[in-house]
């Protein structure tokens, strides 16, 4: 399951970079994250609740940030397991500044096991798109606040 695209945020690269490295913001912006506890370095213990309408699943796992090149790029990794199976996702974010705005180019890859993979297949694509959209929208709101 792969996603890619770009999103333009109305702020400088510096500002966006700071946001992305703030665990509080990350916890707020990443859809479904209920709790984020630092485990040291850029790794956090996470409780993730993914819900689409009546379909809900709770996953326990880790969120980590890797391959950081300040102001340029980072990789966001999410790994978790729960009743409906496991999720392992990586998303690479590349930042570019243009006229005071920051264009974030993202490519993501998610591996999903268990029930969701085999039953939810027809919805996973749409839901992933939806969640990526929510993530950036939340970042945008964060910038406004």
């Amino acid at each position: 399951m792969k996603v890619e695209g770009t999103y333009t945020l109305p702020a400088s690269r510096q500002k966006v970079w700071e946001l992305l490295n703030d665990p509080k913001v990350l916890a707020k912006a990443t859809p479904g994250i209920k709790q984020l506890d630092p485990l040291g370095g850029d790794t956090y213990k996470a409780t993730i609740e993914v819900g689409v309408g009546p379909v809900k699943g709770t996953y326990a796992g880790q969120v980590s940030i890797a391959d950081k090149v300040p102001l340029e790029r980072m990789t966001l990794k999410v790994e978790g397991g729960g009743k409906p199976g496991t999720i392992r996702a990586t998303g690479e974010l590349r930042l570019e500044e243009q006229d005071g705005k920051t264009i974030v180019a993202y490519t993501g890859d998610a591996h999903i096991t268990g029930l969701i993979a085999s039953v939810g297949h027809r919805l996973i694509g749409g839901v992933t798109k939806q969640m990526v959209g929510e993530f950036f929208k939340a970042l945008e709101n964060e910038l406004k606040s």
């Binding site: 591996h111 999903i112 096991t113 268990g114 029930l115 993979a117 085999s118 039953v119 297949h121 027809r122």
Partner: peptide, 14 residues
Amino acid sequence: YDDEGQLLTGTFAE
């Protein structure tokens, strides 16, 4: 199956 061996056709809906 997907490339990690997950059965994508897991119900009669698929």
